[in-house]
Design a protein around this nucleic acid. Sequence first.
DNA 1: CATGAAATTACACTACGTGCAAGTTTGCAC
DNA 2: GTGCAAACTTGCACGTAGTGTAATTTCATG
Lengths: 229, 229
Amino acid sequence: MPELLSRRELNKAATRQAITDAALTLLRAQGPGNFTVEDIAESAGISRRTFFNYFSSTEAALASMTHGFLDNALQQFRQRPADEPILESARAALMQLADPMTVAPLAELFTLTQDNAVLSRSELEAWDHCTEEIISAARERFAGTPGAVVDELYLRALAGSVISCGKAAMDVWFARCGADLSPASLAVLRQLLIDAMGHLGSGFGSPVPAAGPSATSTTATTHLNKERL
Amino acid sequence: MPELLSRRELNKAATRQAITDAALTLLRAQGPGNFTVEDIAESAGISRRTFFNYFSSTEAALASMTHGFLDNALQQFRQRPADEPILESARAALMQLADPMTVAPLAELFTLTQDNAVLSRSELEAWDHCTEEIISAARERFAGTPGAVVDELYLRALAGSVISCGKAAMDVWFARCGADLSPASLAVLRQLLIDAMGHLGSGFGSPVPAAGPSATSTTATTHLNKERL
DNA sequence: CATGAAATTACACTACGTGCAAGTTTGCAC
DNA sequence: GTGCAAACTTGCACGTAGTGTAATTTCATG
């Protein structure tokens, strides 16, 4: 009776989930750096060795949330029509992130680890990994148009900049709203993402975001400054 | 007889240098991950414990080169006139990197570590650290103009994008030219940096770099593709 | 149920990173 | 120079990370 997912795969998924849950619980309770892999394993009901069969480190286990978050955005990007301007595709993909269910784990993770060097390092790695995937996705898209010569520099500079803008928007949002997930807060995040992509699309011509033809960009970002960054 | 640098500081600088030299030598000889901190310490003529008084890990010792490299660029940025367009300042600062003496250590480090996860992680951290510093520098610059409201999102998105473009240019350059430090190769790097900043300044409007008013941008980047990335 | 593949586990081992308490070097005042 | 205090180095011990290996258990399939 072959189901969609075999027993083995279900077990693995459950174990994986148990590990990340246990890691997050311990992070909440003890704070970063105050618990060991053994603690996680015990809390997840597995052996220390099994933990390492799933993740190479504590940080990797926690960063899997960020990976899931970014994979979500990447999936959105891949589904955009190929003839759409690429910056518009990126904007639309990033917009999907301003969803309560999506950002919630990342927001908490951010607040819990923002002052921890070794953990933010894994976050960096996750963003970088996403950049590489965007490069692949964009390369495939351009390769679809026949006869086009793909400029590797263009791809990499673009993908890196898009990710940087997404990261900048989230950083500012976290600094401004903390872990607030209210509709108003998420609206701020959306506007920040729009504004950041607006800056990118207009070549960073002016610190005051010029309202694009399609974006009714209220200058919500220019009124607040001196945030805790 | 108080010299410019006291004996203590000279000794520390020498030890620090001995450590990084030893680490680089071992990296060349054994390859990444095939030597220990103890090996470095012995090669540098110090104890294992002393190594950790200077660097928190092997990767940190090696990443100090990248830090020096990027600090150089940052210094250039800070020296640009405050009324200059900020993207032009960034372009000028990045241009300083295309200097044989400056890129040589970084180029070698890159070729030696490009397929090593744990080492490139430290490189990422160095670039991120530089981003934060650029944000500070740019914030100070804008704060200089009286009455200006500093848009934190603009700052962070801009700094991140500039760094991403610099990184993209170096990545493409390494992929294309390897560790070649000939004048021709460095000219390629300069052109890549110019083109990347051109893309950024024009809002990534077209994959073909539009020759800016001041840049005689031959489209050197569009002819080659399928590089080993 | 029998059999083999896949996953978990215990165990051992190397290396990392740090606290601590010595010992050594340097700077400074007398 | 002598003495002293601060800075630096070193050895030691300890807990933890991460990995290889071999034995054991769990699952799928005939």
